[in-house]
Each structure stands twice: as C-alpha cells, then as structure tokens.
Computed example of a mutant assay.
Amino acid sequence: MHRSTAQQEQAHLLTVAGPDPLAHARRRAILLARRTNGYRAPGAVVLPYRPEAAGMARRLIRQKLTAWELPKLVDPAVLIISELVGNAVKTGCSSFMVVRVHRLQGSVRLAVRDGSRTLPVLLAAGEDDECHRGLALVHMLTAGRWGVTPDPFGKTVHADLAYRPDSSTQGRIS
C-alpha cells in the first residue's frame, strides 16, 4: 500500500514521539504548520496543558500571520493567544487543548478549545492587583470582539483581530 507524504510524515511523527507528550505536541505542531502553510488555510495545533504550550501556540500564530502577510497583527495576536492558552492551562485539565487560527474576510480568529466548562469572566482589576488583567487586554486589543462557545465537554474561547483587507493597508489593524 502506497502512503501519501502527509501519511508518511505522520507515521514518522508517531514513531519518534515516544512517551513524552510535550515532545509529541511539538512534533505535531511542526507537522500541522507544514500542512497548513497555504495562503488561507487555517492553522491548528493540539497542545498539552503545560506552561510550555504558550510558546508553541505563539510559534503557530507567528507562522500563519507571516504566511498571510499580516505582520502588523503578529504582536497583538501573540499577546492574545498567550492569554487564552494561559487561561486554558490554569483549568487543570489533563488531556489536550486545541489552538486554532483562521483568516476570515477582514479579521483573524484566534481560538483555544479546552476541556473545562468553566467560562472566563472579564473582571475589573484594581491598581494593585497582580492578576485579572488578561481578558481585559484581550477585550481592548479586539475592540470587544471575543467570546466563548460552550460544548458538552468543554468550551472554545475565541478572539477576532480586525484588519483592512485592501492591499494598500495589508495587515493594518482597523
């Protein structure tokens, strides 16, 4: 039986991943990024609930926004995905989260699906508070275009970054 290149890469990935779930997630992120380098193809990666997951998610976001020629969205998108992944890590789930990025007409959607049904809450942090600022940052960077979709086994938190799609202001946040 003849296997496609993608099937061969996946078989190799599974062979070399071994028992380390973080190593497996890194290899899977690389494989998925390779497969989704198309102009509008969405990016997705399955990550463990560990602090290192944020770095892998940021790498995916940078790769996709660079491929889509949206360099001005990289910094805000990296901040947003760091917050969403950080919140997912704090849920205490033991399986995997899924990080996705989609290019839509006039916006880029960042999304994190986790296994917790606890919904995020936008809190007003006091001057001396050391936490509760992340979702306020997401709210500010997206002009309030973020939300949550519950499902039977968890939820997906998404944030949309708008840009002007014409070629003269490519990647410019609107």
Rank of each mutant, 00 (worst) to 15 (best):
A143F: 14
D20T: 07
M1V: 12
R103T: 01
I173M: 04
S167C: 02
S168G: 00
G106F: 07
G171P: 03
E127V: 14
P48M: 15
G115V: 06
L161G: 00
R103G: 09
L141K: 03
G115S: 12
M140A: 13
T142V: 13
P150W: 10
A159F: 13
L60P: 03
A124F: 08
I81G: 02
A159V: 10
A23S: 06
L137I: 15
L84R: 06
G43H: 10
S95C: 10
A88Y: 04
P152I: 07
G86C: 04
D151T: 15
A54M: 08
C93R: 07
R164L: 08
R34P: 00
A111V: 05
G55C: 10
E127M: 13
A143E: 12
L13C: 01
P51M: 15
P48T: 15
A53Q: 06
G171K: 02
P71D: 06
R59D: 14
P21N: 03
V78G: 05
S4V: 07
T66S: 15
A54W: 04
A162D: 00
E83D: 09
H158L: 11
L13E: 01
R109N: 03
A162I: 00
L79Q: 14
V108H: 03
Y49V: 08
I30C: 03
A33C: 14
G43Y: 13
M97Y: 02
D129I: 03
V121E: 12
K155P: 01
M1Q: 05
H2K: 09
H12E: 10
A111D: 03
Q63N: 13
I80K: 03
P152E: 13
R62V: 15
E83R: 07
L104S: 07
P42T: 11
P120N: 11
R164P: 00
G106V: 08
P152M: 09
S4D: 05
S168A: 12
D75R: 14
G154H: 02
M1N: 01
G154M: 04
A17T: 01
Q170W: 09
A54I: 15
Q8T: 08
A77E: 05
A53H: 04
D75N: 12
S168E: 05
T91A: 05
L122F: 02
I81A: 06
R35I: 09
L22W: 11
Q105A: 08
L73Q: 03
S174L: 11
R34T: 08
R164K: 00
A162Q: 04
R113F: 12
T169W: 03
K155I: 07
P19F: 13
V45M: 15
L13H: 00
H158T: 09
K155T: 06
I30S: 05
V112I: 08
R145A: 11
T118A: 11
G115N: 13
S116L: 11
K155H: 05
